[in-house]
């Protein structure tokens, strides 16, 4: 096991940020912590990176205890905090060089590890980090977190505030790093990114709702989901909620995800109901369950 967490709890004053959490991450696994803001993801990261003491429970990272062997952990993990935390007044190259030096290594020594990522920001290597775009900042931060060849990489919301194209690129990079044997723990509030992890833990209010592979997690969803669409989104949601047989109604992109209480639900019935409510251009079609649906269901 690369990371194993047992019954960790952490309370700040009267807020329980992390409540009796346990999970294991295998070596070389890409593990995702999925949950909304304030779910306790950052606190878990800080406990695992030895920045915070847990009130209760124990955690092992790369075979070191987070409390007793914190110094060893600090040598062997890479950490990228949620907030951009590089020196804005240093250039791209200077930042990378600085982090290489304080970890007792050089850029040349571990260049192969960061090469794929670094070539993308290399044209801007004399630019100050503060003047980079969001996506490039994240790439630089990832390079800095990787420069000492960590065994475990902690990425706290690495794609928040990054454009969709860069997000996609970023995840492709993670996949490549994983192939090089680095264990990655990543957190994200974006459910679509969850599907890219090997296994995920859904978290809300400091508790783990479920841990499994993304494929298994969606299978646990009890209902068949339908995409519903009409001309008036707002009115559609109102109508569906007033429908006596509705089980859940959530807006999802351009559609509304609808599930019915009955097991023998016939979409035509709903079609007729919506027609009676003066809806036009009605589309009702079955769709795949997503992790977001599962999360909403579990978080109920």
């Amino acid at each position: 096991m690369s990371i194993s967490v047992h019954n960790i709890s952490k309370t700040f004053k009267d807020v329980t940020a992390v409540n009796n959490i346990s999970f294991d991450v295998k070596e070389g696994e890409l593990f995702g912590l999925i949950g909304p803001d304030g779910a306790g993801k950052t606190t878990i990261f800080r406990i695992l990176t030895t920045l915070l003491f847990a009130d209760k429970g124990e955690a092992i990272v790369a075979n070191y205890d987070v409390i007793k062997d914190y110094k060893s952990i600090r040598n062997h993990v890479g950490y990228m905090p949620g907030k951009f935390s590089l020196y804005q007044d240093l250039t791209v190259e200077e930042n990378l060089e600085f982090f290489a030096t304080i970890f007792g290594t050089t850029i040349e020594k571990n260049y192969d590890l960061i090469k794929d990522i670094y070539v993308q920001i290399e044209p801007f290597k004399t630019r100050r980090a503060g003047k980079l775009s969001g996506g490039m900042k994240q790439k630089l931060a990832l390079c800095c977190a990787l420069i000492h060849k960590p065994k475990v990489l902690f990425l706290d919301e690495p794609t928040t505030g990054v454009d969709p194209v860069s997000r996609k690129e970023f995840w492709e990079m993670l996949k490549r790093l994983q192939k090089k044997g680095i264990t990655i723990l990543v957190s994200t509030p974006y459910m679509d990114e969850a599907a890219l992890c090997d296994r995920i833990a859904l978290i809300q209010d400091g508790k783990i709702l479920e841990i499994d592979t993304p494929q298994e997690i969606v299978k646990h969803y009890p209902k068949k989901i339908y995409n519903v669409k009409t001309d008036n989104m707002y009115k559609l949601i109102e109508c569906l909620k007033s429908y006596e047989h509705h089980y859940s109604v959530y807006p999802f992109g351009e559609f509304v995800h609808y599930t019915d209480k009955r097991d023998d639900f016939n979409p035509n019935e709903l079609h007729r109901f919506l027609e009676e409510m003066d809806a036009v251009n009605i589309i009702i079609q079955p769709t795949e369950t997503t992790i977001e649906d599962t999360f909403m269901e579990l978080a109920k």
Binding site: P81, S85, F103
Partner: peptide
């Protein structure tokens, strides 16, 4: 304030 202390702490310095 800038959060760089967090990274410095999680380093062998």
């Amino acid at each position: 304030e800038l959060g760089t202390m967090e990274i410095l702490l999680v380093s062998p310095l």
